[in-house]
Simulated scan of single mutants.
Amino acid sequence: MTEDGLVRQELLTIGAFAARARLSPKALRLYDRLGLLAPAHVDEVSGYRYYRADQVERARLVALLRQLDMPLARIAEVVEVGAAQGAVLLATYWADAEARFASQRTLAEYLRGRLSGRSTEMYGKFVIETVDVPERVVLTEKRHTLADELPVWIPASLARLEDGARECGGTTGSPFVVYYAEVSMESDGPAESCVPVADEEAARAWAEKRGRASGIGVRVEPARRLAYARITKAQVAHPQIIAAFEAVEAWIGERGLSYDGPCREVYFADWDAAGPEDAVCDVAFPVR
Rank of each mutant, 00 (worst) to 15 (best):
Gly275Ile: 11
Asp43Tyr: 09
Gly164Asn: 04
His41Thr: 08
Pro286Tyr: 06
Ile241Gly: 14
Thr92Asn: 01
Ala156Pro: 07
Lys26Ser: 14
Met185His: 07
Glu57Gln: 11
Pro262Ser: 03
Tyr51Thr: 03
Val45Ser: 02
Val78Lys: 02
Leu257Asp: 03
Ser184Ile: 15
Gly173Asn: 08
Leu36Gly: 11
Gly253Tyr: 04
Arg210Ser: 01
Ala27Cys: 07
Glu201Lys: 10
Ser184Met: 14
Ala244Asp: 10
Val137Gly: 01
Pro175Met: 09
Arg100Phe: 04
Ile252Asn: 06
Pro134Trp: 10
Val236Ser: 13
Trp206Lys: 05
Glu246Phe: 15
Ala191His: 12
Ala223Leu: 09
Asp270Pro: 10
Arg29Trp: 02
Asp96His: 01
Ala21Trp: 11
Thr145Arg: 15
Glu162Met: 11
Phe17Thr: 10
Asp278Asn: 04
Phe126Thr: 10
Arg160Leu: 15
Val220Tyr: 03
Ala205Leu: 01
Ala203Met: 03
Ala40Val: 00
Ala205Trp: 07
Ala247Val: 01
Lys233Trp: 01
Tyr228Ala: 15
Val178Arg: 01
Met1His: 03
Glu265His: 13
Gly47Pro: 00
Ser184Ala: 11
Gly169Ala: 09
Gly86His: 08
Ala95Tyr: 15
Gly170Tyr: 00
Arg166Val: 01
Val78Ser: 00
Glu80Met: 14
Leu161Thr: 14
Ser184Gly: 12
Leu68Ala: 07
Gln240Cys: 07
Asp43Trp: 08
His238Pro: 05
Arg20Phe: 14
Ile252Lys: 04
Met1Ile: 14
Gly169Val: 01
Ala38Gly: 02
Glu265Met: 09
Phe101Cys: 09
Leu139Asn: 06
Arg212Ala: 13
Thr232Asp: 08
Tyr267Gly: 01
Ala250Thr: 13
Ala243Cys: 07
Ala87His: 06
His41Trp: 15
Glu162Gly: 06
Ala279Pro: 10
Ala247Leu: 02
Val177Arg: 00
Pro25Leu: 12
Pro239Asn: 07
Ala156Gly: 01
Phe245Trp: 10
Arg136Gln: 05
Ala156Thr: 08
Glu192Leu: 06
Ala156Glu: 11
Ala159Leu: 00
Ile231Lys: 02
Ala191Tyr: 11
Ala237Pro: 04
Asp272Val: 10
Val183Lys: 15
Phe268Pro: 09
Leu34Phe: 11
Ala207Gly: 07
Val81Cys: 13
Lys233Asp: 03
Glu121Ile: 15
Lys233Ser: 03
Ala147His: 15
Leu107Lys: 11
Ala102Val: 15
Leu257Val: 07
Leu28Ile: 03
Leu89Thr: 00
Leu226His: 05
Ala243Met: 09
Leu36Trp: 06
Gly164Gln: 05
Asp272Arg: 08
Cys263Thr: 05
Ala63Glu: 12
Pro25Val: 08
Arg224Pro: 13
Tyr179Ser: 00
Glu77Cys: 10
Val138Asn: 07
Pro155Ile: 02
Lys26Trp: 07
Glu200Asn: 12
Pro190Lys: 09
Arg160Val: 09
Arg143Val: 02
Arg114Trp: 05
Arg74Cys: 04
Tyr179Ile: 07
Leu150Ile: 01
Ala165Phe: 04
Val178Asp: 01
Met70Gly: 13
